[in-house]
Amino acid sequence: MDRTNIIHDLLDWIETHLDQPLLLDNVAAKSGYSKWHLQRMFRSTTGYALGSYIRERRLSKAAQALRATPRPILDIALQFHFDSQPSFSRAFKKQFGKTPAVYRRGSQQDGADQKSSSIAPLPGYYHGSPGLHLLYNYKCMDENCAAWMGQ
Results as ranks from 00 to 15, higher is better:
1 M>E: 12
2 D>Q: 10
2 D>C: 11
2 D>G: 13
3 R>E: 14
4 T>Y: 15
5 N>C: 05
6 I>M: 15
7 I>C: 05
12 D>Q: 13
13 W>V: 05
15 E>A: 12
17 H>K: 15
17 H>L: 04
21 P>H: 09
21 P>F: 07
22 L>C: 06
22 L>G: 01
28 A>M: 03
28 A>Y: 01
29 A>F: 07
31 S>F: 07
35 K>W: 08
36 W>M: 10
36 W>E: 14
37 H>F: 15
39 Q>A: 15
39 Q>I: 04
39 Q>G: 05
40 R>D: 14
42 F>W: 10
42 F>G: 06
44 S>V: 05
45 T>W: 01
45 T>H: 01
45 T>I: 04
50 L>R: 03
50 L>Q: 01
51 G>Q: 09
59 L>W: 07
61 K>I: 00
65 A>I: 03
65 A>S: 14
65 A>L: 13
70 P>K: 15
72 P>R: 14
72 P>S: 10
76 I>V: 01
77 A>I: 02
80 F>D: 02
82 F>Y: 07
82 F>E: 02
86 P>H: 04
87 S>E: 09
87 S>W: 00
88 F>K: 03
91 A>R: 05
91 A>G: 07
92 F>A: 02
92 F>P: 04
94 K>P: 00
94 K>Y: 04
97 G>K: 08
98 K>N: 07
101 A>H: 11
103 Y>W: 12
104 R>Y: 12
106 G>E: 14
108 Q>V: 12
109 Q>N: 14
110 D>Y: 10
112 A>G: 12
113 D>A: 14
113 D>E: 15
113 D>C: 04
115 K>R: 13
115 K>V: 05
116 S>E: 11
116 S>Y: 08
120 A>R: 12
121 P>A: 11
121 P>F: 03
121 P>W: 01
122 L>Y: 03
123 P>Q: 07
125 Y>I: 04
126 Y>C: 11
132 L>R: 15
133 H>C: 09
136 Y>M: 11
136 Y>C: 10
137 N>I: 03
140 C>N: 05
142 D>C: 15
143 E>K: 06
143 E>D: 13
144 N>D: 07
145 C>E: 02
145 C>N: 00
149 M>C: 10
149 M>A: 09
151 Q>V: 11
